[in-house]
Computed example of a mutant assay.
Amino acid sequence: MKKALIISFLRYQVAAIIATMVDFFVLIILTELFNVWYVASTAIGAFCGALTNFIICRYWAFVNSSNNLSNQIVKYTLVSAGSLVLNTLFVYLLTDFGGVTYSISKIITAIFIAIFYNFTLQKYYVFKQ
Rank of each mutant, 00 (worst) to 15 (best):
F47E: 01
R58I: 08
Y102C: 02
Y117A: 08
N68T: 13
A43Q: 06
A43E: 06
Q122P: 07
Q72W: 12
L5N: 11
F119Y: 15
I56C: 06
A61N: 10
L78P: 14
S105K: 02
S41W: 10
T109F: 00
K2I: 07
N71Q: 07
L33E: 15
G45A: 03
F112A: 13
Y117G: 11
L33Q: 09
R58G: 13
W37T: 05
F9V: 12
A110R: 02
K2V: 14
L84H: 00
F116T: 08
F54V: 01
A114I: 08
T77W: 08
G49Y: 03
F127D: 01
R58W: 15
T95K: 11
A15M: 01
C57L: 03
V14G: 03
K128H: 06
I28F: 03
K3I: 10
M21E: 15
I107V: 11
D23S: 03
I17W: 12
I113N: 11
V85L: 11
Y59Q: 07
A61F: 12
I29K: 00
I115R: 12
I55H: 05
Y76I: 05
S8G: 01
Q72H: 04
S41I: 08
Y102Q: 05
V14W: 11
T20C: 01
I113W: 04
A46N: 00
R58T: 05
A110F: 04
A43W: 01
V100G: 05
L89I: 05
Y102N: 01
N118R: 01
S8L: 00
K123F: 06
L94F: 06
V79G: 03
S80V: 01
V74D: 00
V91S: 04
L78Q: 10
V22S: 01
N35V: 07
G99H: 13
S65T: 15
T31A: 09
L84T: 00
L78C: 04
I6E: 11
F90D: 03
Y76C: 08
N35F: 12
A43G: 12
F47N: 01
Y117W: 11
Q13A: 14
L94S: 02
K128W: 02
F9M: 06
A40T: 08
Y125K: 09
T42Q: 03
L27Q: 08
I7M: 13
F97D: 04
A50H: 02
L89D: 01
I115C: 11
V22N: 01
I104S: 03
T42A: 02
A61S: 15
L89K: 00
Q13T: 15
L121Y: 13
L10I: 14
V100P: 02
S65C: 03
T120K: 13
S65F: 10
F127C: 02
Y92F: 14
F116E: 04
L78N: 04
T101K: 08
S65N: 09
W37A: 01
